[in-house]
Design a protein around this nucleic acid. Structure first.
Length: 307
DNA sequence: TCGATTTGACCCCG
DNA sequence: CGGGGTCAAATCGA
């Protein structure tokens, strides 16, 4: 069971690597030596390398065979196990490359060297443990030296706090995404945005990288329907910001306005793209005002003036 | 100055 | 008694 879950994840990563290789190959066959083509090739190579590294980490971790003492069960990477402890509190354990991207805020209260483990175990409790008597805790332990590294995370107790700081109660957050500016939403998670053009399809890809001191750089992307951006929050804020904007060659207007399709949200998003003499997209900038809650699920469509 | 992290000491349980 | 979990003072950094 555990092996099949792991194998499935590894296969998906390799399928992604295969797709990236195909794209890279197409780019090479075009023989385009422009800067944007080089940049796109660089991005694809980077994604390809990461997909390979993730797969390697999974397979290496499987070899080292992570074992949970209580219950004596093996937990494969990305496998999730839920049980109750002796106090009938929920205990959930999982192996992940991003142990802090779980949508909650944690405060570290201890660290301990564990017998037989290379890396120390970190002890965290909910930031609101005192204010709201939230008893949620988690232990985080690095499993290997892979890139990205995998961590065993054991969650104990359920969140009773009303925090959900990454999902709603925060004041209006202004997020400006312009080219390659950096945006930091939390001192612990510096985020870096990169924008890249991919000729000749005039498509743009926006990628959000999140980085923390344990798992290093994480990159996420989303699939997009033509003419729309589907920006869907996943379990965590930090890994959810990824969008690919595809504008066909018929788009000639320098102004591209994205309209919010969900009236209940208070967010607004506008984008301006810059075209060169031949009408090809050269750069794309976003200005986004949003509430954190917006990140849960946003559907956007755009109108574009056609000359 | 205050909140978060670090780290050594202490407690508890098997 | 030893190892894991927590406490709390010291330290860090924004």
């Amino acid at each position: 069971m555990e092996s099949s879950v792991l194998l499935g994840s590894a296969i998906r990563e390799m399928e992604r690597a295969s797709e990236l290789t195909t794209k890279l190959q197409s780019l090479v066959e075009l023989g385009d030596c422009s800067d944007t083509a080089k940049e796109s090739a660089g991005v694809l190579s980077e994604e390809l390398l990461q997909a390979c590294n993730v797969t390697l980490s999974m397979l290496k971790s499987r070899r080292t065979n992570v074992r949970i003492k209580s219950g004596s069960r093996n937990v494969a990477p990305h496998d999730v196990l839920i049980r109750r402890d002796s106090r009938r509190n929920y205990v959930r354990q999982e192996v992940t490359a991003a142990p802090f991207n779980d949508g909650h805020q944690w405060r570290k209260y201890g660290e301990k060297t564990i017998a037989g483990c290379i890396f120390p175990r970190g002890y965290y409790r909910c930031t609101y443990s005192k204010d709201q008597r939230c008893e949620a805790k988690k232990h985080v332990q690095q499993q290997d030296c892979g890139v990205p590294s995998l961590f065993l995370v054991i969650y104990k107790g359920e969140h009773t706090c009303k925090s959900m700081v990454l999902r709603g109660c925060q004041p209006l957050e202004q997020l400006q995404l312009q080219g390659c500016r950096e945006y930091t939403c939390n001192p612990s998670f510096p985020l870096k945005l990169t924008a890249t053009a991919t000729p000749p399809a005039h498509s743009f890809s926006l990628r959000f990288d999140s980085e923390d001191r344990f798992s290093g750089m994480n990159t996420t992307r989303k699939s997009v329907d033509e003419g729309t951006i589907r920006w869907q929050g996943e379990e965590t804020l930090q890994s959810s910001l990824s969008a690919v904007v595809t504008s066909s060659s018929k788009v000639a207007s320098p102004d591209l306005t994205f309209l919010e399709s969900m009236e209940t949200l208070q967010s607004s998003l506008s984008a301006v793209h810059d075209v060169d003499d031949e009408g090809s997209l050269r750069s794309l900038g976003f200005d986004i005002d949003l509430l954190r809650s917006d990140l849960d699920d946003i559907d956007l469509s755009y109108n574009s003036a056609i000359n």
